[in-house]
Design a protein around this nucleic acid. Structure first.
Lengths: 206, 206
DNA sequence: TTCCGCCCGTACACCCCTGTATGGAATGAC
DNA sequence: GTCATTCCATACAGGGGTGTACGGGCGGAA
């Protein structure tokens, strides 16, 4: 995620990973349109000749970057939570981890804004499907029947997406959403516990 | 929202409103980058000469279109709900009305994706601020104290934003979110009642 | 040393978009 | 009919991005 500026005379060769991460940062900041080979080359301290050696064209970079996003924010995240046995702790850890990515803030709104793009649609479809399936499985482990578990999963995922969007659009107006991590404020914990408690609420009504 | 194609020989003169609505539709479909004077002119059956007579430049169109969005989806929406006296009915009517805009689906993700744009930032700030303030006032009328009312308003607004985003990105995967209006499915009502009930839950815990 | 494959820099043509300048059609006033 | 205003069409210059062709440095192998 850090840029390798040319500090000495010997500059390391760039990898497709470098281009992908740079593309994700540009996409998170200025949308899909900001992913221009020109701008990324200047940002990485190289020229477009390097790019067209590693990638076929711009669409190949988009798909590669989105696959990195899929891997880091879905596949790796789910596998990391496999150690936690208690489903309630898994749920809390899942949301706190997912909401902790401040550097790539605004990436998901940018991706969703171009949901019709041929390079975006299939990956966005896979990510959404897997995330909702994981949440459904999680709420099922919490004691919900399949149908309510899926409804709860959709609601929880929508709340998570909106939380990201709100944090990007108005973190100064709504300062509660800007803070996360271990020092989460009352509003963030309110949302998470609300999503966890509502599932419990239906499983065994008090 | 409907395009005035040149059906006869006498074509009506275009208004700035026509350009604004066309810009909003393009923005909802392809993001801010899709708002090009060339494409809109072709879509409206005219040339760029017409555009530059009504508007100073492209940024003027963006601000005008976003002000139309602000008026239609915030100012007019709030004033329409003034007739309903019961705050709970107001809350339900608010979400069902706000979620009923299927034609401009994906507009808010596109706007949020360019939250840093100088033409987008101030309007997005006003809209977010007013909506959260309205929701906070609504939850206060439901019996919540100021601080919990604001927390609940932020959570409810985040759920609404995420619902829109989810409906745009994966309406085929999650068919529950695609349907709305009077025949809202169980998932949609689940989210709304969940947001309404959670406020009630804190006001007078059972 | 010489050669070869990897990686990058440079130059070129092409396309799309913006903004402006200018001409022209249509409409109403007189 | 003449004229002025409103609205749109056309032409041009400029800029930025993409994709490609080609050349050159550079390190390892024979």
């Amino acid at each position: 995620m850090t840029i390798q500026y040319c500090t000495g005379m010997a500059r390391r060769h760039l990898t497709p990973q470098d281009w992908s991460t740079a593309a994700l940062r540009a996409m998170a900041h200025g949308g899909v349109a900001a992913v221009s080979v020109n701008a990324l080359a200047g940002e990485l301290g190289t020229t477009r000749g390097s790019f067209y050696w590693h990638f076929k064209d711009r669409d190949a970079l988009l798909t590669a970057a989105l696959e990195v996003w899929e891997e880091d924010n879905t596949t790796a995240l789910i596998s990391e939570l496999g150690d936690i046995t208690d489903p309630r702790q898994r749920l809390t850890a899942l949301f706190t981890t997912a909401l902790g990515q401040h550097d790539i803030n605004g990436l998901e709104p940018a991706i969703v804004a171009h949901a019709d793009h041929p390079a975006v649609a299939p990956i966005l479809r896979r990510v959404t499907d897997r995330r909702i399936a994981y949440l459904t499985d999680l709420y099922t482990n919490l004691g919900l029947a399949p149908a309510p578990a899926r409804r709860q999963a959709v609601a929880a995922y929508a709340a998570y997406l909106g939380w990201l969007e709100l944090r990007r659009s108005a973190s100064d107006i709504v300062p509660e959403v800007a803070i996360t991590g271990t020092t989460a404020t009352a509003a963030l914990e309110h949302l998470i516990t609300e999503l966890a408690r509502s599932g419990e609420h239906q499983a065994k009504p008090e």
